[in-house]
C-alpha cells in the first residue's frame, strides 16, 4: 500500500495536496482497499462551501456507504466529474486520476492539523 510523502492525511482517510492556495482532496489507498469495488460517488457542486470535518460527499461500494469528510474549510473550486461516471478509478488510481475536489482554503492554519505520511501509516496500523 502506498502513501506518497508529498501528501497530508486525515483520520477519516482522506488525502490532501497543497497547490498554492488550493488543496486537492481524495481518499487514500487504504480507504479504497477497505471499501472494495467503488460503484458510486457523490460530490458537491462547484462553488459551495465545505467545512473541516464535515461531510462533502459520499462514496459507495456494493455493500458499504462512507461519508467523505472535508480535511479543510473553504469553497469548492473544482470537482472531478470524471470519477462520477467512472467510480472504478477510485480503486485504480486513488492519488492520481481519482482526486475528488479542489478547495480554495479559507483558513490555511487547518493544514497543520493533518498527518504526514509516516504518521498516517502508523495510525492505520493501530486502527487495524
Amino acid at each position: 500500500m502506498e502513501f506518497p510523502k508529498d501528501l497530508k492525511y486525515t483520520k477519516e482517510h482522506e488525502w490532501v495536496k497543497l497547490e498554492g492556495n488550493v488543496v486537492v482532496v481524495g481518499i487514500t489507498d487504504y480507504a479504497q482497499d477497505s471499501l472494495g469495488d467503488v460503484v458510486y460517488v457523490e460530490l458537491p457542486q462547484e462553488g459551495v462551501g465545505v467545512t473541516k470535518n464535515e461531510s462533502f460527499g459520499v462514496v459507495e461500494s456494493v455493500k458499504a456507504v462512507s461519508d467523505l469528510y472535508s480535511p479543510v474549510s473553504g469553497s469548492v473550486a473544482e470537482v472531478n466529474d470524471a470519477i462520477v461516471d467512472n467510480p472504478e478509478v477510485i480503486n485504480e488510481d486513488p492519488y492520481g486520476d481519482a482526486w475528488m475536489i479542489k478547495v480554495e482554503l479559507s483558513n490555511a492554519g487547518e493544514l497543520d492539523d493533518l498527518m504526514n505520511a509516516d504518521d498516517y501509516q502508523k495510525f492505520i496500523e493501530e486502527e487495524k
Binding site: 472494495g36 469495488d37 460503484v39 458510486y40 459507495e60 461500494s61 456494493v62 455493500k63 467510480p87 472504478e88
Partner: peptide
C-alpha cells in the same frame, strides 16, 4: 450460476 458480479450490477 456461480458467484454473481454484484459490482458490475451496480456500476
Amino acid at each position: 450460476v456461480g458467484r454473481v458480479d454484484e459490482t458490475r450490477a451496480a456500476r
